[in-house]
Design a protein around this nucleic acid. Structure first.
Length: 463
RNA sequence: UCCUCGAUAGCUCAACGGUAGAGCAACCGGCUGUUAACCGGUAGGUUGUAGGUUCGAAUCCUACUCGGGGAGCCA
């Protein structure tokens, strides 16, 4: 007798038909009659369930008929063709052992639950159809991203989670400390004395691996990071989490154009890979989450992304005839409503917007020849908004130094970052891709809390 | 953080100033091919929390907590 998984049964049913097999998994539902019944079993390996038929010949027939959803069982029997229309085959049980009982108050039902409720039982929601699909896609997408970069000889750099630099410039940070809050050490000025802290200085959770990635980029040429990122911003939106995963490639001897080509290739590769390797999951999303999903994704893999400059975007918005809440004028940053118009209505596909005024972009972005814009690029996609933010980096020592001065930043904090420009600073570029935002785009799920296993958001760190 | 909407049985919802209900889940029973199984029955509630108005509050008012949507910040 062979043990099998549901995935194997569906992949190679000929090998198993009319043979005795053993299969183990969790009960999704039981339908019982007087002398026989059916169990829907999911073993976690495949999106579809296996139907098990059992009858009163089983010694524990009564017990099986009363199984509660969620119970773990091990079933043995022959795999036979099913007379029912909804499944090609089923297991005719000769024996069913109960590995773990469930309880009458099992919170998951056969009927549909709201995503809001399922977030309150995040430890059980991967057992639902939707979340089983989301997290298999998440796993496959992560693999596809590594595969994409590895096949192109990029080096995967694992940058630190704890950073001693408070100068990453990407927002509020979470403090990391071992100090006793009830008895904080103070210095002469009565301020907290961080020299007594674990690292002898202030430390925080990283908000970006970019600065460190640049260091490795200027040694390995092409690198990428893929790791957790932490932002202590009080953001309450369906697109923000305090802990999320980010992919940050960095390429040397390359500029903004190569950077955008890389981003486009990577997205198309990843989406194509998921479409090919998660057909059941993607069909499910298309049927139950977003009816236009597959058409949109398949179209995206074929089409060229749009390209416009910030200045062109302003012109498009001015000529659009739309009534916007925020004014459209050169020198004003693009608001969400503007971004949505450009990617959803004007282009109807992903669009790179480049060359923003330096005033609302980070210090490290490369100054353009016009002296007022920088070589930045944002990728906007319909439904999700900004999915990628990147730039060519300022590789000229004196320009970077000048920019730090203009913004009132302390050059001492950036000594090693400046060093990278001092010792063979080559043109280089990179971007950050929010992994969860990619998953939202891939699955049609509209809340970031539903594409990360145990979401951390303001006032919520349960589990 | 701001604006806005919401919170009623385990879940999804109804009742909108006058005795809190239904479907599903659970429990008991019936049913020889079901598949969101079906049929009959039982049980299940200080209506998010704390105040207030009223003869009377799930319903009106205030504050708070939590959640949804929108905005800002951004990935």
């Amino acid at each position: 007798m062979e043990t099998a998984t549901v995935k194997e049964l569906f992949a190679r049913s000929d090998n198993y038909l009319n043979k005795k097999i053993q299969i183990s998994g969790w009960v999704k539902t039981v339908r019982s009659s007087k002398t026989f019944g059916f169990i829907e079993l999911n073993d976690g390996t495949f999106f579809s369930n296996l139907q098990i038929v059992y009858d009163e010949k089983l010694a524990n027939f009564q017990e099986i008929a009363r199984l509660i959803t969620g119970s773990a069982i091990i079933a043995t029997g022959e795999l036979v063709e099913s007379p029912g229309a909804k499944q090609p085959f089923e297991l005719k049980a000769e024996r069913i052992d109960i590995a773990g009982h469930s309880e009458p108050d099992y919170p998951l039902q056969k009927k549909r639950h709201t995503f809001e409720y399922l977030r309150t039982i995040a430890h059980l929601r991967p057992r639902t159809n939707t979340f089983a699909a989301v997290f298999r896609v998440r796993s496959v997408a992560a693999y596809a991203i590594h595969k994409f970069f590895q096949e192109r000889d990029f080096v995967h750099v694992q940058t630190p989670i704890i950073t001693g630099s408070d100068a990453e410039g990407a927002g509020e940070m979470f403090r990391v400390t071992t100090l006793d809050f009830d008895r904080l050490p103070r210095d002469d000025k009565k301020e907290v004395d961080f020299s007594k802290d674990f690292f002898g200085k202030e430390t925080n959770l990283t908000v970006s691996g970019q600065l460190e990635a640049e260091s490795y980029c200027l040694a390995f040429k092409n690198v990428y990071t893929f790791g957790p990122t932490f932002r202590a911003e009080n953001s309450n939106t369906p697109r923000h989490a305090a802990e999320f995963w980010m992919i940050e490639p960095e390429i040397a001897f390359a500029g903004l154009q190569e950077n955008m080509n890389l981003a486009e290739d990577m997205l198309k590769y990843t989406i194509g890979y998921v479409l090919k390797h998660c057909p059941e999951e993607m069909r499910f999303f298309n049927n139950f989450v977003d009816k236009s999903l597959l058409g949109r994704l398949e179209n995206l893999v074929e089409s060229k992304f749009g390209h416009i400059t910030y200045s062109e975007a302003i012109e498009i918005l001015k000529k659009s005839g739309e009534q916007f809440e925020y004014p459209v004028a050169w020198g004003h940053d693009l608001q969400t409503e503007h971004e949505r118009y450009i990617t959803e209505k004007h282009f109807g596909k992903p669009v790179f917007v480049t060359d923003y005024p330096k005033e609302f972009k980070a210090f490290y972005m490369r100054m353009n020849d016009d002296g007022r814009t920088v070589a930045a690029m944002d990728l906007l996609v319909p439904g999700v908004g900004e999915i990628i933010g990147g730039s060519q980096r300022e590789e000229r020592y004196d320009y970077l130094e000048k920019r730090l001065d203009e913004l009132g930043l302390n050059k001492k904090d950036y000594w090693w970052y400046l060093d990278l420009r001092k010792y063979g600073g080559a043109p280089h570029a990179g971007f950050g891709l929010g992994f969860e935002r990619l998953l939202m785009y891939l699955t049609g799920m509209t809340n970031i809390r539903d594409v990360i296993s145990f979401p951390r958001t303001p006032k919520n760190a349960e589990f």
